[in-house]
Amino acid sequence: MSDVIRLEYRDVTMRFAQGAGHLTAVQGVSIAVRDGDVVSLIGPSGCGKSTLLNIGSGLTAPSEGQAFVDGERVEGPNAHVAFMLQKDLLLPWRTVIENVMFGVEIQGVAPAERRRRAQALLENLKLADFAGHYPHQLSGGMRQRVALARTLAVDPTVLLLDEPFSAVDAQTRMVLQRELAQTLKRAGKTALLITHDLIEAVTLSDRVLVMSRRPGRIIDEIAIDIPDRDDPLKRRTHPRVTEYVNRLMDRLDIGAPEAA
């Protein structure tokens, strides 16, 4: 881990046209994520989390402010970032390994190298036996792991993860969380993780950022001071987890009568 900033949002504001006027989704958000850090972003539904992810991946341009990845201003999709969503977005007509190779194929990596990378990732994620299967033959958890492999295959410095495990069952989610944590640690990747699962935010990250209701601003930042970031299952049992979760609930107004 170094002090290099890998992902940065500088005073980002995003407005969408709505009817005659506009809707401000995010307002003056500044975030800086250092190399190798995992930062979680939590906030009420509709506060602009996914919007920030789209800005970071270069799919949408912010109304004001800038995003930087690896020190370069984001002006469109670029090879330094890759994202993963709640939906696995696997192509049903491609086998597992072909799905993993999708990104590198588009980026024009040589076929032999594509296959080598995909194979290695499948080994790591315990999917090697399923390389020739089609997505419909896999469970939800496995599909999500294939999506993770596809994201990692392009070897991005920054991963943007938008509720990646919210569609899988609780037990599979824990397994996937550990796999993600280990992979991020092993590869030294920087990640911004959007989640509604407070325990997931606490156990997977170095820091948690809390956003307000729309227009979304960063209203709190909590450094997670628990060891073993690569082992969320172990972290789960740490006594400080409850403390952090309570603080997050407090910041999110969960439990307050009007929030229900």
């Binding site: 999709p77 670029n78 977005l89 588009i106």
Partner: peptide, 17 residues
């Protein structure tokens, strides 16, 4: 699915791709 198109775009796919 527009998210599929976005996925391809994020990998810098051309219109033909």
């Amino acid at each position: 699915d527009p998210d599929l198109i976005n996925l391809a775009r994020a990998f810098k796919a051309t219109r033909a791709q």
